[in-house]
Simulated assay, not measured.
Amino acid sequence: MALTTFRIGGDLAVGRLGFGAMRLTTEPGPAREASLAVARRAVELGITLIDTAHLYGAGANEELLAEALYPYADGLLITTKVGVAQTGPAGEWKFDGRRDVLRDQFEQALRRLRVERIELLQLHRIDPEVTLADQLGSLRELQAEGKVGRIGLSEVTVAELDQAREIIDVVSVQNRYSLVDREHEPVLAACEAAGIAFLPWRPVAGAASGATAEIGAVAAELGATPAQVALAWLLDHSPVILPIPGTARIDHLEENLAAAHLRLTPAHRDRLDRLTEQMR
């Protein structure tokens, strides 16, 4: 399957419709075997962007992807995230941007993914207890050592993105965003102006279950599912959007990928664009 591509950082070409691995089961058993099959099928179908994180099973998700896909196909980008750790008072997960934590999670990722370099490393969340300069400086050190190719952010505001860009070259932003959740529209606009990749997580939230009658109506007219309409709208809404829908089922994976070939008419786009005001 040939998907429209985007060059992250101006040079790293990936298909615009990626895959979020968070939902893949990592515990031993039939569900894990199914998760391995989903990851392999994603690559077979042309996916070249897979998103994971240390947070997903304390690295178990990274290990699963390596088991499924290593040695990796040419052109496959597996991006991971660091900065959320089990370092709370009772061992709970919390934002943690301290240098030693970020470096440790990164080194674990290298080992688990069986690579010597990660082409796109993202800061999972900004830790309010550590200066942004220190957090990004830790990632910049890894980049200077040749272990990281590019750096991205997750769940940031426009102000935080502007501040980060004074410190490093930000090539991607991963914020919650979908057809029915456009809170971060200003961040998307900032990314579009700067040519920064915007990776919406939960890209089919609400629409996947046909939460609004209008999405369901458009889907029926196009012979598609509400989730496909939501993904097609995202791909059409901005050229810097790279959705990363996640699933643990092959049929849902194939359904999501089919959205890359769904064409919305101007009338359909207008109806979907008006949903935000209607929902308000």
Results as ranks from 00 to 15, higher is better:
L3K: 05
I8T: 14
S35D: 01
R16A: 03
T5L: 03
A34V: 02
R23D: 06
L36R: 09
G20L: 07
F19T: 13
G29M: 03
G15T: 10
D11V: 05
L17R: 13
L12E: 10
V14A: 01
T26P: 06
G29D: 11
I8Y: 05
L12W: 03
L3Y: 07
V14D: 01
E27D: 12
A13Q: 14
L17W: 05
A13H: 03
R16D: 01
R23W: 00
T4D: 12
G18W: 02
T4G: 14
R32D: 03
G15K: 02
G18Y: 03
L24K: 03
P30W: 08
L24M: 12
S35I: 14
A37Y: 12
G10F: 00
L24F: 04
E27F: 03
E33H: 04
G20D: 09
I8V: 15
A13R: 11
G15Q: 04
G18A: 14
L12M: 13
M22W: 12
L3F: 11
A34H: 13
V38K: 08
T5Q: 07
R16V: 01
R32C: 00
R23M: 13
R16Q: 10
A31N: 07
P30H: 05
T5V: 08
T25G: 00
G20E: 06
V38L: 06
G18T: 10
T25Y: 15
S35G: 04
G20A: 12
V38Q: 08
G9T: 05
E33R: 10
T4S: 15
M22Q: 15
G29E: 11
A13L: 09
T25I: 14
L17D: 13
I8E: 04
R23C: 08
E33T: 07
V14G: 01
D11L: 02
V38G: 06
L17E: 11
P28F: 05
L3I: 15
R23A: 14
E27S: 07
A31R: 10
L17Y: 11
L36N: 07
G9L: 04
E33N: 10
G9C: 01
T25D: 11
L3P: 05
L36T: 06
R32E: 05
M22R: 09
A31T: 07
A34S: 14
E33C: 05
R7C: 08
L17K: 09
T25E: 12
T26R: 14
T5P: 02
L3S: 13
A21Y: 15
T25P: 00
G9S: 04
L24T: 13
T25N: 11
A37E: 09
V38A: 04
P28W: 04
T5M: 04
D11K: 07
S35F: 15
A21S: 15
A21C: 12
G18N: 11
G10T: 01
L17A: 14
T26G: 07
R32N: 05
G20I: 10
F19I: 11
G10V: 00
A31F: 00
T4Q: 12
F6R: 09
T25S: 09
I8F: 09
T4L: 14
I8M: 10
E33L: 14
T26E: 07
P30S: 10
L24G: 12
T25R: 15
G10D: 03
R7M: 06
E27M: 02
G18S: 14
D11I: 02
L36A: 04
L36I: 14
G18F: 06
G29R: 07
L17Q: 11
F19Q: 08
